[in-house]
Design a protein around this nucleic acid. Structure first.
Lengths: 156, 156
DNA sequence: ATCGATGCAAAGACTTTGCAGCCAG
DNA sequence: CTGGCTGCAAAGTCTTTGCATCGAT
């Protein structure tokens, strides 16, 4: 499974569909998120984009991530390091968190998703309305220098 | 399954076993963590304990949580709200996160744990050494005012 | 033209650090 | 005694907020 590409037109549509104004900043930030398999923080996003878009301010990155999240295009990601990170919300997936590099990497595995969802649907926790499940697999990347395709299609 | 009680003696032993000095502050903080089913932040812990122990400083709470974590008595908890929270590390369990009250509640369910662990053991992710799994179930508590025992033994 | 979005800077929230003095072993 | 621990305060990091200006519709 490879990440599909999104055209500028498609990204514009995603934003417009949610009733948000299609600004340069939103386009650029959402595009950036769509091309990433890891989940950069606001500061990382700003650092990487500010060269190409020098007027982009860090405050705008925070505000943009927030409005894209409220509108449902992004999800916040749980993370032990206490930094807020975001995730393009296309299909459900788990995350690999590297204790060494502090990267978060998508782990798409529909079987695992079904397993957990199925179990929880069955179980019906009393007094609690389930809205989502976040699964994070903590561990260590073995060879950070080598890019290897792992089973689920994630590139490490 | 009900939370078991820990005597002061037992808590002292837990701390001493890890080669840490048994101070009043560590005793009090660890005891507090052991009696809680939710996972308070450092500030919440301080706020709740400072009445009874007025000399306890917030900095010490942070340092204590850190040393207990390094020694393996606590685990950091993933959380969307960006605040660092800690968890007494006794048996593996999932967490319920309430989007409304922002509480984190233990969800002990050995069957679910086995399900996920078993699957991942089987799968063997290439190039990644698994050290732990964190499962967080996001949703909303239905009746925060009513305390109800749910199936896994957690009191909501 | 209008109203929401941006950029900037200041404030805020949370956490870490440095160091003098204290206390458990 | 002695080294690790605490309390305090200052500094640091990450995030939010307020407001004048700008720009998408």
């Amino acid at each position: 499974m490879t990440k599909r590409e999104y055209s500028s037109k498609e990204i514009q549509a995603l934003i417009a569909q949610r009733g948000l104004k299609v600004t340069q900043q939103r386009l650029v930030i959402l595009q950036f998120m769509l091309t990433r398999e890891t989940h950069p923080s606001a500061e990382e996003i700003h650092r990487e984009l500010v060269n190409q878009y020098p007027s982009l301010s860090l405050g705008t990155v925070y505000k943009t991530l927030d409005s894209l999240t409220v509108s449902g295009l992004l999800h916040k990601v749980f993370c032990v390091d206490g930094i807020k990170r975001y995730d393009v919300n296309l299909q459900p997936h788990a995350h690999l968190y590297c204790n060494t590099t502090h990267q978060i990497i998508d782990f798409e595995d529909s079987e695992l998703q079904k397993l957990v969802w199925g179990y929880l649907q069955e179980k019906k926790i009393q007094n609690f309305q389930i809205e989502g499940v976040q699964l994070q697999i903590q561990g260590t990347i073995q060879n950070p220098e080598k890019a290897v395709i792992i089973e689920s299609g994630v590139t490490l």
